[in-house]
């Protein structure tokens, strides 16, 4: 029951880590967008830690470091990673939906929705079209 939520927590840890190198490569409005995104991920992480602790299940902690899927060397690769991070996070939240119900389902849906909206925001900033996907979080 809680393993899907533990996976969501692991994804949030990874997202927070990734926004470090992403933020370094961005300036102005984009950097601000990265800071907001990182803060949102921290908020989700904290709620998940609380929830999983209350349930008495496994509460995964953050790894010391994460291997990025590709090197972040400039603004373009930073935006690409931000999109990928949000898409991956959305997928993990989506996978947790069937394992939840009621208020917990609502909060998991918020996790999916927020990640999907941020992915769209990043695609817009990167000038990638289409800026939306029909089924956010669904495995390709």
């Amino acid at each position: 029951m809680s393993s899907e939520l533990a996976a969501a927590l692991a994804a949030e840890h990874a997202a927070i880590y990734a926004y470090g190198p992403i933020g370094v490569r961005l300036k102005g409005k984009a950097a601000e967008q990265a800071r907001e995104a990182e803060a949102a991920h921290r908020g989700r992480r904290d709620s998940l830690i609380l929830l999983l602790s209350q349930k008495g299940g496994e509460v995964p902690s953050a790894a010391a470091g994460y291997e990025l899927p590709f090197p972040v060397t400039d603004e373009a690769s930073a935006l690409r990673l931000a999109i990928e991070i949000e898409e991956r996070t959305a997928a993990v939240w989506r996978a947790a939906l069937p394992a939840t119900e009621g208020a917990e389902r609502t909060s998991v849906l918020d996790g999916l929705t927020d990640a999907a909206v941020r992915a769209t925001r990043w695609r817009r900033r990167a000038g990638i079209t289409p800026v939306i996907v029909p089924f956010p979080g669904r495995p390709a």
């Binding site: 959305a90 989506r94 996978a95 939906l97 069937p98 939840t100 389902r105 998991v108 849906l109 999916l112 929705t113 999907a116 909206v117 992915a119 769209t120 800026v131 939306i132 996907v133 029909p134 089924f135 956010p136 979080g137 669904r138």
Partner: peptide, 14 residues
């Protein structure tokens, strides 16, 4: 739930 959740999230992205 996953399909309907994706649709709700998609509408938020719209």
């Amino acid at each position: 739930s996953a399909l309907v959740g994706s649709i709700a999230a998609a509408r938020a992205t719209h």
